[in-house]
Design a binder for these strands. Structure first.
Lengths: 213, 213, 213, 213
DNA sequence: GATGAATGAGCATTCATTCAT
DNA sequence: GATGAATGAATGCTCATTCAT
């Protein structure tokens, strides 16, 4: 084995990402405590000891996994904020579509489950997720709702609770897929759910609505 | 030590319940793996060894905790089914109110979080919860929605997805309280959420609705 | 349940013997360490706590089992000694027959196995057995051999080693039955072994023997 | 678990042997249950955890100890078989001498005691010993006796029982040394026993023998 | 940098022993 | 005397972490 081989150099730089990727899989499957460093190392294709060249502790790896998953969401949150001038129905359809797409292409659902499950053991992570993802996204949504109320687009009401009305079903769908589908429950078409729920909640929130007798 | 001291009277009949109660607290705080039998025993006011007079293993205790939490839900589900002849809006307000009340008076939310977090390590529990709680409740809701559609009370659409639209925000509220409130997020008034969402979704699902330009 | 019931009184007196009997079975099956007081109590038909009304510790029960098994052997040893005036072949046939009979009607073999297996953990028991059973029996045999040598009945030689020649095969037969027969080895006719070995060793030890070319 | 990977991974070559050696000592002194992994590890000069790099469980270590002791015996058994063409007396003297030598240079006696004592808890080990050591050795001896009977060298009789007559005293001597010598009994010269018994039993089994009145 | 053998603290589980009833 | 619930010390096993190579 020759030191300084370029193949190694390049791999070294990629290592942390590979480890986080492998760790994400194992944590998602087993949860934090039941995940074994042996398995993470094996899936990352390195030795167990090598993990400690890149991370201090197992908790560190866990933190990296969760924080890494925050990044794409931050982008999404930024997206929410910048589109904030659209009419609310258009904005909502756009945002929900984006959320569903991100969930479909990343392991975001699995990470959400991890954060939920380990929130008591890793309060800082729950805090990070709250502060940098959930709260900001919810804040953006609340802001858009407040403005839409001011414009008379949607009916009055606590915009934070309205935001729950909007996002909750999608979150429930994600949890369903992560929790019950693997144990035999019928699968769920998250996109169809988002589409139908969007129209339902838009009608429900619209101000210029008249219910006939 | 005085003979006949009431403190030491045999409580064997109450013990399993006390243990499950103590275990619920510890599991809810730590998750399955991080929960220590020492602490469960201490909170139950008995020795570690005594746990094994009532349960075979730690997993057994966990199962008991989860199964015990199922019972009150079964009653609630039965309640749902028997009220099925009411007009849908009345039924929904009734049911949602009941759900929120149960959640407020039991540790159901904590158990739900446990089931979600440990679903990969205890698939049978996820299955039990799916079969005996989630699926039945969702089934009842779907049935009521189907009938309401037939009666022309609510608009057409996949009733299962409509059920997600109805229940999702409440579930999200529960998760919020269990996950983010303990780490500093602003508390959530679950009852207000339920109330407002009920009206929103009822409007959104109603068939006799006209959106004005 | 009436205190002082005569049925109980009589049982109480028989209890230690019943316990020792039950313990013998369990110890014989499992060895000392793997034997559980629960099982001994169950087989004796009493509660675990009641064992401590008759014995101080588990070791105590074990000691009682082993010592109890000594008694019938002491009788046998006495028998050996009193018949010591017979011609040696007659004496040997008598004694070996008696040994085989005792082994066939008691759990002596099992106890021997226990003593052998636990001799390091219970040196006093090994000592008791040596002093009160093995050594005395061997001493009696050695004495008889010495006298038979003096009478010219059997050929000269270390009488202790001759005693091993006589007894060894029977002991081996007992061990065989206790160790290998339960795991599928073909059973052994201990009586036939004793009979044939008796004649073989009597010929081998006889002084008036001529080997033809 | 890698398919096809040999059960004995690349390990420090000497370690397993050192562990087995240390374990043999501890098991021989305490028996299986009373032997503590702490002590085995200490005597092997490693930590308790390191044991599990080489063996799965305590039982595994025990099995290795017993199986390892089988190997030298297999060689001995083969030796018996290949010398089978000698005249019986010469063969017997050769074989017995070899047995005594092996016993004197190995801890075979201690292992035999272990197998006897734990035969109920580890039936497979008793079976292995029966099938691969005792049965084969006894079979070889029986075969030699049968041929010797056919040649008219020794008198008729059940050859299996004759084998017991031959081997029993040596086994008894081994057990004596392992069981009673450590608790104060006078030591036994196993070689002298073997020598004298050999001549005794050869005379006893010889066909061309006449007993004078 | 990389390895994997070695460590040792930590935990679930067992079971002889006790004691209030 | 008898019970059996309760105890707690003991121990096999796990696994994150370290370190000599």
């Amino acid at each position: 084995m020759q030191a300084g081989s370029p193949k190694w150099r390049r791999r070294s730089e990629a290592r942390p990402g590979e480890i986080v990727q492998a760790a994400l899989e194992v944590f998602a499957e087993k949860g934090f405590a039941a995940a074994k460093l042996d398995e993470i190392a094996a899936r990352a294709g390195i030795s167990k000891g090598a993990l400690y060249l890149y991370f201090e502790t197992k908790e560190d790896i866990f933190r990296a996994v969760v924080r890494e998953a925050v990044a794409p969401n931050l982008d999404m949150v930024e997206g929410l904020l910048t589109q904030a001038t659209l009419p609310f129905p258009d904005l909502l359809r756009l945002v929900i579509g984006r959320i569903v797409k991100v969930i479909g292409t990343t392991r975001l659902g699995a990470v959400a489950k991890l954060v939920i499950g380990e929130s008591r053991n890793f309060p800082e992570l729950a805090r990070v997720w709250h502060d940098e993802v959930v709260s900001r996204a919810l804040g953006a949504m609340t802001g858009a709702l407040t403005r839409a109320q001011a414009r008379g687009e949607i009916r009055p009401g606590d915009p934070r609770l309205q935001a729950f009305s909007i996002v909750g079903p999608v979150l429930m769908g994600v949890i369903w897929q992560e929790t019950f589908t693997p144990v035999g429950a019928s699968a769920l078409d998250l996109e169809a759910l988002a589409l139908q729920h969007c129209e339902t909640v838009l009608t429900g929130l619209a101000s210029r609505v008249v219910m006939l007798p």
